[in-house]
Amino acid sequence: MSLPEYLLRLGDNALILSQRLAEWCGHGPVLEEDIALTNVALDLLGQARLWLGYAGELTGRDEDQLAFLRDAGEFRNVLLVEQPNRDFAHTMARQFFFDVWHGLLLEKLSASKDERIGGIAAKALKEVAYHKHRATDWILRLGDGTGESHARMQQAADDLWMYTGELFEMDALEGEMHQAGVGCDLAALHEPWLNEVSRIFREATLEVPKQSWMQRGGKRGIHSEHLGYILAEMQFLQRAYPGAKW
């Protein structure tokens, strides 16, 4: 039963990042960005529902039971996506690191031997191409904008860098999925990811962070302190009124 666990990794990434982006709603730096952030949040939420829906079918639970009735230790998202919004630079750095990886991953998964995964990945890939384009735009504008925006963007990149290693971490489950032709070799995505990030950073006059020690654990259910609060908020109604239909 490793497939459901694998699907939770995919679904939880999308769900938790969507939840973070939705926090911006009504508070964006300019109305157009408010709309764009919500748009990305909506796309990711749609993707989360497809992954969790599939995971649920295999385990006899629906998407809502998976989203609202699991505790933090059962969530399988990477640490990067649960990091707080902080400011617009942190939000966009998190998004950029994730989107570049997400695009590479989905491209591989769209050729998955599991047709359902292939279909979801192909659909999501189109959306993620737009997310990546937009995030790249902001890395350039903020990196090569004003002194303040440059400093904030560099700080955000430095702060978040240690959460990027986990994206490429192979473990027994990833290995099994890769062997079966269902998943892919995450470690092999690192080089194209780093090339792309370095190219955009150079153009944005930013330094690629040098830190090499990486945080890990999210994929195994060991999270940062932030996830508990995300879930406390997100799951409130389902927890307070057990069994109610909404």
């Binding site: 926090e23 709603c25 919500t38 949040a41 909506l42 749609g46 969790l52 809502d64 389902q238």
Partner: peptide, 14 residues
Amino acid sequence: ITRAPSLRRKAILL
């Protein structure tokens, strides 16, 4: 939005 009681309701509200 962050407290919507189901994923469907959350998507509609967003």
